[in-house]
Design a protein around this nucleic acid. Structure first.
Lengths: 126, 126
DNA sequence: CACTGACATTGACATTCGTCGATGTCCTGG
DNA sequence: CCAGGACATCGACGAATGTCAATGTCAGTG
C-alpha cells in the first residue's frame, strides 16, 4: 500500500486547447532535494527564523569585534536571561554562533562562513 | 521600573588582567535590528524553514518553466494533498511563491527576487 | 572560605506548527 | 445537468516552540 494512488490522470485529455491541458505533471526526472539535505537545511534556517534570534545575530555582527557577551544581548531585547541563553544555545547548535568563555563572561561570535553558506543555498538556482 | 536592572558592574574591576576584564558590555550605540524588521524577516525565513517546503521550492525551481502544479509536488513528498496545499499557501503568503490557476490545475512558481532578497540579508554584513 | 554575580540548566506552561481526514468549491466531460 | 477530478478550506490532534521562574554551576572578591 501507499504506492501513489495517483494514476496518471491525463490519459484522456490532450484534445481541446493546444498546450494548456498538456502541461500538468511533467516531472523533470530529478528527484528534487534529498530528504536529508532538506532536513539539515531546514534546521539551520529554523535557527534564524525567529525575530529575537535574528536580532541577536544582528547585535553580535554589529559589535566591536563581531562578538558580544550575554549581557550585551539581553539588554536591548527585553527578554529574560534564561531565554537569551536558550536562544543562543540554539544558534550555537545550528552552527551559526560560537561560544567562548573568558573569565566570568561568555562571548558569542559568528561562525565565519555559516550565514554565507545558507545564503548560497538561496541564490544558487539554475 | 523595568529600567535596566543592570548596573554597570565593572566599576570595581579593571585591575588584574589587561583587557580580558575591561571588554564586557560595550554597546556600539546602534540599537541593533528593529523589532518590526526582525519579525518580518523571521516570518519569511520561517516559511522556508521546513524540510518539505524546502523540497517544494526545489521541485518548482528545477521544473520545466520554473513552475509546477500541485500533483507534481505532492507525488515525491509522501504527503497528503491538503498538507501540500497548506504548505504552498504558507509559501505564497510569505511572498516566496505565486499561484496561477490555469484550467483545472494550479501552477506555482517562484517570485523572482524573493529568495535572493532573503539571501542578501544573510550576506550583507559589515 | 563564604559570597556575589554571570551564565547554564531544568521544569512548567501557553502558543504555534505540521499533518491528516472530511468537506467545500469550481471546472470539465459525458 | 450531473458526475468526477483538482484543489482549497475546515476542524482536530499530537508534537514542537518560545517564554519565564527557580535552581545549579563556576569564577573572582572581600
Amino acid at each position: 500500500m501507499s504506492m501513489s494512488v495517483h494514476n496518471r490522470w491525463m490519459t484522456t485529455a490532450m484534445s481541446t486547447t493546444p498546450e494548456a491541458l498538456t502541461a500538468c505533471c511533467t516531472p523533470t526526472g530529478e528527484p528534487a532535494m534529498s530528504e536529508e539535505t532538506a532536513s539539515s537545511l531546514a534546521a539551520q534556517f529554523k535557527a534564524i527564523a525567529d525575530p529575537n534570534r535574528l536580532r541577536m545575530v544582528s547585535i553580535i555582527s554589529s559589535s566591536e569585534n563581531a562578538e558580544a557577551c550575554v549581557c550585551d544581548i539581553t539588554e536591548p531585547l527585553n527578554l529574560g536571561q534564561s531565554t537569551v541563553s536558550h536562544h543562543l544555545k540554539i544558534l550555537v547548535d545550528a552552527g551559526v554562533l560560537t561560544r567562548e568563555k573568558r573569565g566570568v563572561w561568555a562571548y558569542y561570535s559568528l561562525v565565519p562562513g555559516a550565514l554565507d553558506s545558507l545564503a548560497g543555498v538561496l541564490t544558487s538556482r539554475p
